[in-house]
Design a binder for these strands. Structure first.
Lengths: 341, 341
DNA sequence: TTGTATGCGTTATCAA
DNA sequence: TTGATAACGCATACAA
């Protein structure tokens, strides 16, 4: 059955297109009778108002764009899940863009979105670059933007983040209390806000507990599994840390593999803690101590914030910041062991 | 900077809108000179052709819809990743819909897509329902559909699947060779094609090796973690299987947890194997023997198939079926143990 | 090579 | 309560 348009539907009912159109808008004046008749016929003939024509006319798309660095990461897929739930409730559709941590791609996606394709953007940032001008243009075009988790500090727009500094401080303190004195901090991008904040918590905890700081212990990793493997093994053998704190889930796994290859026992010789949204962290060998962000909740909050901006643009506080708590869940990868004492 | 439209851009250049329009289409006659001038001005003034107006005019959206049962599953997020890569190369955008395994939602999404919103659909099915009429309508509307992994047998359209029967047979044989005689098969939905195919491999392997079949060992699970926990613990204590074969990743994790709670040692007392795309299966305790589907590759193939349908509609073979191989990766959850012999 | 005019399918304004 | 009509922004057939 070919899709039918409003004209044909109108003709088949001996009505005007305006009347038919009204049947699909809630607010319009139309008798219940004709409305029912029209809706019945629409169902019968499989009529759906054309999305592109409506959008062109109404100048909005009922679509939001979600931009994330990667899809193969539990945190982001859970966050998207949260966003999707809210969007669906509101009758919105979501477009997904993965940047593969490439700042150029991010900029390119956003430039494309200037064309009316989406009514708003929810995004977790990919780059450290200083030129975020393409983002500043958004506001002026009334294309609302909400950041979640990874943000650009210099762009003023609502954001949903977690208490990274506190979590990081608590994680480092936990390692210290478990007896660690040489704690490596693994990061993907030191310059990204999230890298900085988390690192500061680590540094301050060290200072607070009078642990001497060795800046070689801050290890810059990459997005490549192979390269990280080399970097980590070299680091483990040269620096001999007794604790590893990873700012990203993937690096915790990489540490497990590297320790395995080097026959370093976790937690006896090296204790490991990491930011991670892995639901089966308890099933790892050893079970992984994690700082777990409320990923789905973050998605829900970010979407809610965006819809607030769309529905009540006048009441928007661009400085709005929702801060959610992550949880430090202690498991065996940081357990005390006979050997430690 | 407010978005500018084609008219304003044309006026600012003292050209007609058609000339400007031509600058953005590759095929049209236009002098290189004016084209360059227009593109430069467009960049300057931040002009982007309005997506909805173009689509309305051209009657296509350069968008594909991806419908999956769930997002919090490694298989699907990897598959989406593959789809996203191909789509991006082709200049297409992707809309994501998660059905939460709800067949009603699936039907509702697809009905919505009748309105021109997407040029094609890639989907993994959610339900066993027999009424797939809403799908049959698609073909007649020239809205191409490609299935991946979970398919409806009665809908004739291209599909990308894995050799589930063989994998299932091999997995069961592996358990048998490791000494298992009472092998439980855990499934979410017996009636869905994927459940049926995988189950048949299991049944045939049992028959081949003369293992008596007890139909209580086929355990119907749910999507609820809590309910599965109850079901599995009850099953383990009552049926005392020495092997568990799970048709879905999540059920393998559930089995680990249930065994943990009941103090059943894996692999000594119960061996476990499961379909899973978990990249860190080697890090589990014990490491999990998996049948791993090439998830990203499946996404890539499905997207390629869809683009073939979009680009060469005449050459489409609706019976086209791409079958990829899964890998059986033996790890410790099915290892031989002293106790077994 | 460029310009003019029309229509894609819808909704809003205005008139009846 | 309903109908006629214009406009949303763009791309193309046709004319120049």
């Amino acid at each position: 059955m070919r899709n039918i348009n409003i004209k044909e539907l109108a003709k088949s009912l001996n009505l005007s297109t305006s009347t038919v159109s009204r049947a699909f808008r809630d607010n319009s004046d139309i008798s219940k009778e004709t409305k029912d008749k029209i809706l019945a016929a629409a169902k019968e003939l499989n009529y759906q108002p054309n999305h592109y024509a409506s959008n062109l006319r109404e100048q909005r798309s009922k679509t939001i764009a979600v931009i994330v660095p990667e899809l193969g990461n539990n945190f982001f897929s859970q966050a998207i899940h949260g966003i999707e739930r809210i969007a669906r409730d509101k009758g919105y559709h979501i477009l997904i863009y993965a940047t593969d941590d490439d700042h150029e791609k991010e900029a390119s996606f956003i430039r494309h979105l200037h064309n009316g394709r989406a009514d708003g953007i929810i995004m977790s940032a990919s780059g450290e670059a200083n030129d975020h001008n393409y983002l500043n243009e958004l506001n002026q075009e009334r294309l609302p933007l909400v950041f979640f988790d990874r943000v650009y500090e210099d762009i003023i727009t609502p954001r949903v983040i977690t208490n990274d500094y506190d979590s990081s401080f608590a994680a480092t303190r936990h390692l210290i209390k478990q007896g660690c004195r040489r704690i490596a901090y693994l990061v993907i991008n030191k310059n990204l806000s999230i890298g900085k904040t988390r690192m500061q918590g680590y540094l301050d905890a060290l200072a607070k507990y009078n642990i001497p700081f060795d800046d070689h212990l801050i290890v810059d990793c990459t997005n490549s599994y192979q390269k990280n493997s080399v970097i980590l093994k070299e680091m483990l053998s040269r620096l001999k840390p007794d604790g590893v704190f990873t700012s990203v889930e993937r690096l915790a796994f990489a540490t497990y593999y590297a320790c395995g290859e080097m026959n370093l026992a976790i937690p006896e010789q090296v204790k490991v803690i990491g930011f991670s949204s892995l639901e089966i962290a308890p099933l790892l060998s050893p079970s992984l101590t994690t700082i777990t962000q409320p990923a789905t909740k973050i998605g829900i909050e970010a979407a809610s914030l965006l819809f607030k901006m769309l529905e009540y643009p006048d009441q928007v506080d661009v400085n709005e910041k929702v801060v959610l708590d992550s949880k430090l869940i202690k498991r065996n990868s940081t357990a005390l062991t006979a050997k430690t004492y």
